[in-house]
Amino acid sequence: MRVGLHALGIGDGARPEIVRAVARAAEAHGFGRLWVGEHVVMVDTPVSRYPYSDDGRIAVPADADWLDPLLTLAFAAAVTDRIGLATGVLLLPEHNPVVVAKQAATLDVLSAGRFTLGVGIGWSADEFTALGVPFAGRGRRTEEYLAAIRTLWRQDTATFEGEFTRFSEVRVNPKPVRDRRIPVVMGGNGDAALRRAATVADGWYGFNLSAAEAVERAAVLAGHRAERNRPADDFGVAVALTDGDPELLPGLARAGVTEVVVVAAPPATPDEATRWVAGLADRWLTPARA
Rank of each mutant, 00 (worst) to 15 (best):
I10N: 04
I10C: 08
I10H: 03
G11C: 11
D12Q: 13
D12S: 14
D12P: 11
D12I: 15
A14F: 10
R15G: 05
P16E: 11
E17I: 15
I18W: 02
V19M: 06
R20N: 08
R20T: 14
R20W: 10
A21I: 13
A21L: 09
A21M: 06
R24Q: 09
R24G: 04
A25I: 15
A25F: 09
A25M: 09
A26P: 12
A26F: 12
A26V: 15
A26R: 05
A28G: 11
A28W: 05
H29E: 11
H29W: 12
H29V: 15
H29Y: 12
G30R: 10
G30I: 15
G32Y: 05
R33F: 04
R33D: 00
L34H: 06
W35K: 10
W35V: 14
W35T: 12
V36I: 09
V36Q: 00
V36D: 00
V36R: 00
V36S: 00
G37L: 07
G37Q: 03
E38I: 15
V40H: 02
V40G: 02
V41K: 02
V41L: 03
V41N: 01
V43I: 12
V43Q: 02
D44T: 13
D44I: 10
T45R: 14
T45D: 11
T45P: 01
P46K: 12
P46A: 13
S48T: 15
S48E: 07
R49F: 06
R49G: 10
Y50G: 05
Y50E: 00
P51S: 07
P51V: 10
Y52H: 07
Y52N: 06
Y52G: 06
S53K: 08
D54S: 14
D55N: 14
D55C: 13
G56Y: 10
R57Y: 01
R57C: 03
I58Y: 06
I58D: 04
V60C: 02
P61I: 15
P61M: 13
P61Y: 13
A62F: 08
A62L: 06
A62H: 13
A62N: 06
D63Q: 14
D63L: 13
A64M: 04
A64H: 07
A64L: 02
D65P: 12
L67Q: 05
D68L: 01
P69T: 08
P69R: 10
P69Q: 02
L70Y: 00
L70I: 14
L70E: 00
T72G: 01
A74K: 01
F75M: 11
F75Y: 10
A76M: 06
A76R: 01
A76F: 03
A76G: 06
A77I: 03
V79Q: 02
V79I: 13
V79D: 02
T80Y: 03
T80N: 08
D81F: 06
D81A: 15
R82G: 11
R82V: 13
R82L: 07
I83C: 03
G84K: 05
G84W: 06
G84Y: 04
L85V: 13
